[in-house]
């Protein structure tokens, strides 16, 4: 018979999110207040899903890459490049469809570059994507010529700040993307391919799987996700800030994937859980902002909470806790 484990009772991620939300409510009693204002929902909870959306979108692309034992460090820089392309295109008066297509194509090209280095040249993903992490920001700075390119195209601004059914547009995009990516992974064989590659690359190759093509495709998808996040980030502030857009967000995206329970050793992954990880990170960030803590504590608080979450997720801890739990019920009898 299967032993009762903590994860059977509740996913540790959901517990972590609940824990952080309660903590936020304790430091700021109005945290759960959501009101209707100017045709949209307004409140701290809405801020969490709105601000968490770019990292969630990055995490969606990152999950499958990490599941093949890879990593994409360039997503933050690709965000900056895509934002710069979108902003210059909007300033030039191009319609939204051209702007979006241009930014996504640039993201696709960046992803294909990363994927080729990893899949066909066999370069370690860490090193291969580091190239674009450094160079990408330079490219973005070249496009914007070092300044913040501001635009006023209402259609593009809507992508970052508009709302659908009262929900912020970035969150809606992230949700749709999450569902689509999850269905493609789980309703087709692609998810199995990814798990096979992540578990054992040679074995996957011997079964006749075209591992290289799959890996190339995953990095290309990751590039597109990053470009989408970049367009949202630029639209949100109505300008492309090449120096700061997406800065260090690759780390948040990787963290979101890890919190979501995807193994860095490959093979096991879940896209919705990664998105939940991104929401957990943002819930923490928003909580710090409304708490009134001095900024010197931001990083300490974040680090402590993340360590706590990772401990909660550890198999060892789950084992110990469930053993205790088990013993107590025996005694109870």
């Amino acid at each position: 018979m299967r032993r009762l484990s903590l994860s059977d009772i509740a996913k540790p991620q959901l517990l972590a999110l609940a824990f952080i939300l309660v903590l936020n409510w304790m430091v700021f009693p109005g945290f759960f207040n959501v009101t209707w204002q100017d045709g949209r929902l307004f409140g701290s909870l809405i801020d969490v899903i709105n601000r968490g959306a770019p990292v969630a979108i990055l995490a969606i692309g990152m999950t499958a890459i990490i599941a093949t034992r890879g990593v994409d460090l360039s997503v933050g820089a690709v965000m900056a490049v895509a934002g710069a392309v979108a902003a210059t295109s909007a300033v030039a008066g191009q319609p939204l469809i051209v702007t979006l297509a241009g930014a996504l194509l640039v993201g696709l090209a960046c992803g294909l570059w990363n994927g080729s280095l990893v899949a066909f040249l066999g370069i370690q993903p860490f090193v291969a994507t580091l190239v674009l992490m450094v160079a990408g920001r330079g490219v973005a700075q070249l496009i914007t010529e070092g300044s913040i390119v501001t635009f006023s195209d209402p259609a593009l601004i809507f992508v970052g700040t508009g709302s659908v059914l009262g929900l912020p547009m970035p969150a809606v995009i992230a949700l749709i993307l999450m569902i689509a990516a999850h269905l493609v992974m789980r309703r087709t064989a692609i998810g199995l391919f990814v798990e096979a590659i992540g578990t054992n690359l040679s074995a996957a190759n011997y079964t006749g799987l075209r591992a290289r093509t799959v890996i190339l495709g995953l990095y290309a998808f990751g590039g597109c996700c990053a470009a989408l996040a970049g367009v949202i980030a630029a639209a949100d502030i109505r300008g492309a800030d090449a120096n700061n857009a997406g800065l260090w967000l690759e780390l948040d995206a990787i963290l979101a994937v890890v919190i979501g329970g995807t193994s860095l050793l490959g093979g096991r992954f879940s896209i919705p859980m990664s998105v939940l990880g991104a929401v957990i990170i943002q819930a923490m960030n928003t909580g710090i902002l409304v708490s009134g803590l001095p900024p010197e504590f931001n990083l300490i608080v974040k680090a402590s909470v993340i360590i706590l979450i990772l401990v909660m997720q550890s198999d060892r801890v789950a084992e110990v806790v469930s053993r205790r739990f088990g013993r107590m019920t025996t005694r109870g009898k």
Partner: peptide, 26 residues
């Protein structure tokens, strides 16, 4: 009454201000 870091950037300035607005009665 409230002081937080926005890292000198536009996006963080917006995010931090959103938090302040919620915390200070809209």
């Amino acid at each position: 009454v409230r002081s937080q870091t926005g890292d000198f950037t536009r996006s963080k300035g917006k995010e931090v201000m959103e938090g302040f607005l919620k915390a200070e009665n809209g």
